[in-house]
């Protein structure tokens, strides 16, 4: 075999092209082969989060329990939907909440009793809050502290998260939980998230919402691929690392 000049320009360009094409095909193949399994995992994770808000944590059969408990999905618009659930014969409404913490996104679910006012359970998670501080909102003790709290006062969403002794004057302890120590900004994020997200579902909770039809219904498969189903993903965005608070 004739010795190739591996330093020539033509060889370099052809070589780079071939390497990139091979890599591209390989990646496309792996990504499309594994996509169904990955989507199933994401969906499963979302279901376990909804169940956690209904105080059904660590279920062995997430799929089965979810189908048993969740009775109906109520669509308010293309992007907003909540769930009607039944736990031990009691009606619950599960509201998805979404907001921003100190470093990245926050999300979660709030399950509300049939009276449309009392919190039955919550689940929160986060993208990248500080471990040991803001990340503690994902721990059960914090989420359980919401149990039995009230959502509305004087027609406004009052449920909040405040530093001990820093709640607005005259707000009874029925309407707020204590913030996580050392994580003021994350706690404020949860507070804001609850207020803005729950406000969207006031009518549903009062029982006089006018739900729209399932926007996924009658949509061709082709479009469904791009449909944003209300699932929670874990966006990975490049971000600048800054000092912790």
């Amino acid at each position: 075999m004739a010795k190739l000049n591996t330093n020539s320009n033509v060889y370099t360009i052809v070589y780079a092209t071939i390497v990139v094409i091979i890599a591209a095909f390989l990646l496309a193949f792996v990504a499309s082969a594994l996509k169904p399994t990955q989507d199933a995992n994401v969906e499963n994770d979302r279901k376990s989060q909804v169940l956690a808000s209904l105080n059904l944590r660590d279920q062995a059969d997430i799929e089965g329990k979810y189908n048993e408990v969740i009775k109906e999905v109520v669509y308010l618009s293309e992007t907003d939907s909540c769930f009607k659930a039944e736990v031990d014969g009691q009606q619950k409404t599960v509201i998805p909440v979404k907001g921003a913490g100190l470093w990245g996104g926050l999300w979660g679910y709030v399950a509300v009793d049939a009276d449309g006012e009392t919190v039955f359970g919550t689940y929160f998670s986060h993208e990248s809050e500080t471990a040991g501080l803001g990340a503690r909102i994902a721990e059960q003790w914090f989420q359980d502290s919401f149990k039995g709290k009230k959502l509305f006062k004087d027609g406004e969403v009052a449920l909040g998260v405040y530093k001990q002794g820093k709640a607005p004057n005259g707000l009874e302890t029925d309407y707020y939980v204590d913030a996580v120590t050392g994580a003021t900004l994350t706690s404020n994020g949860v507070d804001q998230m609850l207020k803005t997200s729950i406000a969207k579902y006031v009518e549903v909770l009062k029982g006089n919402a006018a739900p729209v039809a399932d926007p996924n219904e009658g949509v061709t498969v082709e479009v469904e691929e791009y449909e944003v189903v209300p699932t929670i993903d874990h966006p990975v965005e490049p971000k600048v690392e800054e000092m912790e608070d």
Binding site: V19, V20, A23, L26, L27, V30, A31, L34, T37, Q38, N41, V42, N44, D45
Partner: peptide, 19 residues
């Protein structure tokens, strides 16, 4: 390119099997 391709494959496998 080689490392990036392998990393992407491993990351996809992790997402599919140890989510």
């Amino acid at each position: 390119v080689v490392v990036a391709a392998l990393v992407t494959i491993v990351s996809n496998i992790l997402k599919a099997y140890v989510y």
